[in-house]
């Protein structure tokens, strides 16, 4: 259970988050929608403790992570995996080593063939060929492939909570669908909590148990498909207008 209470954040004289309140139950999928530059990524970085709020609290399983020391945070981070908007792959390592990195760090029991097996499996989970993509550097593969390597790295340790910052932006429809299925699968089979920032309305409706729409640092609509499409907020109406025109 993640509980966000009255979170505010400013950078210089610009207030990016203007009081966010949100409960995310265990084992549910939350999708965050909103226009560009509205504070979605900033909110996500608060949830995993990369940014500290100026005001408010972020409570993960009963512990307020917004006031934790780096050492305490390190312990809590074991529950999380995160896919960054731009991948954030380690460019001094091969793609293989990127995916193997969390396993080598935290699963000392996995060695040799067992480790290789696990890494191969993760590559294949995201339709990547470990023998082709693995040995290359992150700079030597396509944007969509990078995104998938980042996905594989984020879920390598089977975290209980996975944060996805635009996991499917730049992926083809088939792979997008596979990622959606994986998120749903993780929830069904392992009770994983997923928090997904997306611009893809169709997949948002497909995977979400709950959707929030962020506008100008505030949550302006909460709910599901129905609440989104019937909102009276002018920006939200414009946001869904093109999609509605095509799909209704």
């Amino acid at each position: 259970m993640i509980r966000i209470v009255g979170v505010r954040k400013r950078f210089g004289d610009r207030e990016v988050l203007k009081g966010i309140d949100l409960d995310i139950p265990r084992g549910s999928n939350l999708v965050i929608l909103g226009g560009s530059g509205m504070g979605k990524s900033v909110l996500m970085k608060h949830i995993i403790g990369l940014l500290q709020p100026d005001e408010g609290q972020i409570i993960v399983d009963g512990e307020d992570i917004s006031r934790m020391s780096p050492l305490q945070l390190k312990r809590v981070r074991g529950k999380f995996g995160m896919v960054f908007q731009n991948g954030a792959l380690f460019d001094s390592m091969s793609n293989w080593d990127n995916v193997a990195f969390p396993l080598r760090e935290h699963r000392r029991d996995l060695k040799g063939a067992a480790l290789d097996e696990r890494v191969r499996h993760l590559f294949q989970l995201f339709s990547l060929d470990p023998d082709v993509v693995g040995p290359r550097a992150p700079s030597e593969i396509s944007g969509g492939q990078r995104k998938r390597v980042a996905l594989a790295r984020a879920v390598a340790l089977d975290p209980a909570i996975v944060l996805y910052d635009e996991p499917t932006t730049g992926l083809d429809p088939i792979t997008t669908d596979q990622v959606d299925e994986m998120i749903l699968d993780a929830k069904r089979k392992l009770g994983v909590t997923s928090i997904v920032i997306s611009h893809d309305i169709a997949s948002a409706f497909k995977i979400a148990d709950h959707i929030i729409f962020i506008y100008d640092g505030q949550i302006v609509v909460r709910g599901l498909k129905h609440e989104m499409l019937t909102s009276t907020h002018p920006f939200v109406q414009r946001f869904f207008a093109t999609w509605t025109a095509k799909n209704v």
Binding site: L50, K74, R77, F80, F84, N86, A88, F90, D91
Partner: peptide, 11 residues
């Protein structure tokens, strides 16, 4: 490029 943040998220 957020690689330092990525390290943190990997504990």
């Amino acid at each position: 490029t957020e690689q330092i943040d990525a390290l943190s998220t990997l504990a």
